[in-house]
Amino acid sequence: MRIDWWTIGLQTINLVVLLWLLGRFFFRPMAKVVADRQAAANALLDDAKAVQDKAAQAIREAEDERDRTIAARDAALDAARKEAEGQRAKLVEAAHAEAQRQRGDAEAAIAHARGQAEAQMARHANELAADMAARLLEAPGAKLPLAAFLPELEQALSALPEATREALATSASPASFVSARPLGDEEKHAAREVIERALGHEAALAFASDSALIAGLRLSGGMAVLDVNLRADLDRVTAKLDSQDG
């Protein structure tokens, strides 16, 4: 057996060189690439964790925003509900007031209509009473003499203004003397005498008859109309009653 020391030395050198070469070109690059991959994986995990945290934060913010929106919606609904209730109360109050006003107007209109109707009924009643009185007075009125009405005529003519009296029954403007029944000459003369005495001048008269007067006469001319007859009395009474009935 022989040990070759040269070979041991060369092999030792060879192995040291191989150690250095493999360390430089194999083991360290391998360790580096594994470490880099591990670092990249860690970075990816960190990024994923960051993204996850960010997503969780976004979810929390979205939930908060949703809660705020819900709260704002509830508040808006409450405010709208309160405003609607206020508006409804105002509308009800206004409608109530309008109904009261319309009711008052209707009641007033009804009262007015009732008053109108009552007044109309009263007028009709007055007219009916006047007609009835006229019918009742037709027969006895026809029997009344004209002389019964002449004093009242004279008094009425005397009450006229002087100018009216002077312009009444002139030849230029004869007056109309209407009696309830046709007059005889004597009655015409008596009437003319009373009129001329009251006017103070000769009277130009045109005699006519109208049974509607019931009894009495009507003297008219120029601006003056003098009713001294039962029809006029009835009309005055009717007008008075109408004015009293409202």
Binding site: T7, L10, Q11, N14, L18, L21, F26
Partner: peptide, 25 residues
């Protein structure tokens, strides 16, 4: 320095290993 067969074989193996390491690197 005598160069023996194990040394030459080792050189060849070293060359193969280093070449493979370089290619892989």
């Amino acid at each position: 320095v005598p160069i023996t067969q194990p040394v030459v074989a080792t050189w060849v193996i070293m060359a193969v290993m280093v070449l493979g390491a370089l290619l892989l690197k």
